[in-house]
């Protein structure tokens, strides 16, 4: 039955139910009280990039090929290749700066990197006090170990490790086959044959 004012009363009933329910049903109250409690972000969550190294920080996977610098849409990466005294390029970066006040977390640098060396972190607590230089992450800040990468993104890191291992094995197999073929070609002909 439809009495005047019915919609108003039904509205009041719903808010009352929400009010009472928020004391008794935990799933009604969805507040997470940061910083005492933190939401568990999912594995795929991405914030800012970082560089991966395998054994030690002075041997990163990055070869300073500058593909990520070119492909980055807001141009927030700045790379300078490391050279030795004679000017020959060593395949690693001397300067690798990412300005995280410009970075828009689009993940394109991760997709185009051919060496699986730049990956996305999920640390979001990056506030700093200084506005201008504190938000530029330099090479020491960016280098993090493969163990750290496995910790924050286990499934993705496992895939990357498997791929790198397969590539390394394929390369080793090819090298061994080439060495075997070269050894066969320069082998001493067997005794008895006419040269």
């Amino acid at each position: 039955m439809n009495y005047p004012g019915k919609g108003l009363v039904e509205g009041l009933a719903i808010t009352a139910r929400n009010f009472v329910g928020s004391y008794f049903y935990k799933d009604r109250l969805t507040t997470v009280q940061y910083p005492e409690e933190r939401v568990q972000t999912p594995e795929n969550s991405r914030t800012f990039p970082f560089l991966v190294f395998d054994e030690s920080p002075d041997k990163p996977r990055c070869t300073a090929c500058k593909i990520c610098e070119v492909e980055c849409p807001p141009k927030c990466i700045y790379i300078v290749m490391d050279r030795d005294d004679k000017g020959k390029p060593l395949q690693r970066p001397k300067v690798f700066d990412i300005d995280i006040s410009v970075c828009m977390q689009c993940q394109i640098c991760v997709e185009v990197c051919p060496f699986e060396s730049i990956k996305m972190d999920n640390d979001y607590e990056k506030s700093r006090y200084g506005r201008f230089n504190d938000l530029v992450q330099r090479l020491p800040d960016l280098l993090k170990s493969n163990a750290y990468y496995n910790k924050i993104k286990p499934a993705e890191a496992a895939e990357v490790d498997a791929k790198l291992k397969a590539e390394a094995e394929a390369k080793a197999a090819k090298k061994a086959a080439a060495a075997a073929a070269a050894a066969k070609a320069t082998a001493v002909p067997p005794a008895g044959s006419v040269t």
Binding site: T15, N18, F19, S22, Y23, R28, L29, T30, T31, Q33
Partner: peptide, 8 residues
């Protein structure tokens, strides 16, 4: 008001 809106 907060409890009606399901927050503290």
């Amino acid at each position: 008001l907060g409890r009606i809106q399901n927050r503290y």
